[in-house]
Structures are given as C-alpha cells and as structure tokens.
Design a protein around this nucleic acid. Structure first.
Lengths: 121, 121
DNA sequence: TTTACTGCAAACCGTTTGCAGTTCC
DNA sequence: GGAACTGCAAACGGTTTGCAGTAAA
C-alpha cells in the first residue's frame, strides 16, 4: 500500500459519482501533486480486478469508475451525459426464458435508462 | 445517393450482425475497392441520424452498427465479445416508479445481458 | 458554377505499454 | 540485492476533422 494507492482509494471512497480517470487524476493531484495518470490507471484497474469498484462505459466511450460496487443500474442523461445510480426495488425483473437465451448463460443483467435529467428537461 | 452510400446501405441490409466500422469497410470494399474509411463513417453517422440503423458500444469501447433499428436488447459474451439480439416477449418490463426516477424523464431502456455464449462456455 | 460528396492524412481522445529510475524490505 | 511500484513518453485503436480534388446538377 503506497501513498499513491491510498490517495486513489480515498478519492473514490464515499463518492456517489462516476468519475473518469482524468477526474480521478485531478482529485488525486490535489493531495499528491506528482501522481501520474499511468499510476491512476494502474491502480484503478487493480481495484476493478479486486472487485472493490465497478467500471462501465459512459456515453462518450470513456471508462467511468464506480465506487459503488454493489449491483445497481444507471440513469443516463442523453443531453449532459450525467449518470445517476438507481436500485429498483422490484430488482429489475428482466428474465429471459430458455428459448430466448438460445444456449447463452446469463451472469448479470445491466440496465441503462436513457433520458433527460431534471436540469436538462 | 452515390455509389458509396448505396454500397454501405447494401452491406448492412438484412444482416443480423453488429458490425464495427472496419468490418463495414471490409465488406464495402469487396464491392467498391476504392471506398475509404472516412466515407464509411460519414455514411454510417448519417444512417444513424436518420434512424435507419442503431449504434451502441461494444465491450471494447468501439461503436457497433446495428441494422436492426427496432427496439431490442442484447446478449453480450464477456469472453469473445460476440453480440446477439434478443427481443423478450414480456417486453422487458423494467419500470421505475416516480421516487426512483427523481425527476428524470426516461425515454428508453436498454438492457444488456452479460454472460457466456454457447461456444465459450 | 455552385453544391455535395469523396479520400487522404493528420489530429484527436482515452487507454495501455515499455522502460528506466525509485523505494522499501 | 530483489521485488514491487512509479512516472514519463511513446504507442495504440477507434473516431473525427480539414482540406483539396472530383462528380453531379
């Protein structure tokens, strides 16, 4: 556990947001100015591999790191690209029957709700 | 309507697959060898803007062009990145209640089933 | 002659990689 | 000394853009 890794972990901890690697770099550099983008990526990839955080692709194609590793879904604003968490209580019961699956084994289901956030409407 | 556009439209027409721009280029060049990648992108972007085809991001982050513009969902193999269409008959009834929406206006819901395709299991 | 479209090459953005230098045991 | 980690810079893959040349009306 190095200073760099601690800082990256701290940046993500407790955030409800979905930061890009650049944003993580920004915040990390406020605490440790000499930290580099490569280290940010190294560390983020390790955290993802350990299951500590999640990743997914934002609208623009870049990766977003999600401190909330628990299963949840996303609301995505098609106008400003903002991302909100959502955890449907009915637990998003999308199920495929055997016919629809055609031999595919489904491990997890990801739901993205596209639309407009309150500010962009 | 130029020869190039006709060829791009022909390449996509009737396919059930989800082609990358490069794959569209490959197939288009078999019919029109001098066609360029830039033209492929120009034409694909126009077709998307017209609603003739769909786009989404594949696992690797690149864009996939989907000749099937009708609403449907995807099965995504996390091993070989293959993509299959699926149209749940129960129409994938994931709905958020007003509380969960928090002022967000939902226009469309995208569901991705992650897992293993028959060949990769 | 104007307009739209093409193809090339360069730019671009986010991510990954190679490698030399550093730190810590 | 050896293992692990850092930071730089270069490479990379996919997409977009600027621009000069071409074709069509």
């Amino acid at each position: 556990m190095t200073a760099q890794r601690r800082v990256v972990a701290e940046v993500l901890d407790g955030e409800h947001v979905h930061l890009s690697a650049d944003e993580v770099l920004d915040r990390a550099q406020r605490r440790l100015p000499e930290i580099s983008l490569a280290t940010i990526y190294n560390t983020l990839n390790e955290l993802v591999a350990m299951g500590e955080i999640g990743v997914f692709r934002g609208l623009e194609g870049g990766l977003r790191y999600d401190p909330n590793a628990d299963r949840h879904h996303h609301l995505l604003c098609d106008t400003c690209a903002a991302i909100f968490d959502v955890t449907p209580k009915e637990s998003a019961g999308v199920e495929l029957d055997e016919l629809e699956r055609r031999g595919f084994r489904v491990d997890r289901t990801e739901v993205v709700f596209h639309g407009r956030c309150p500010r962009c409407q």
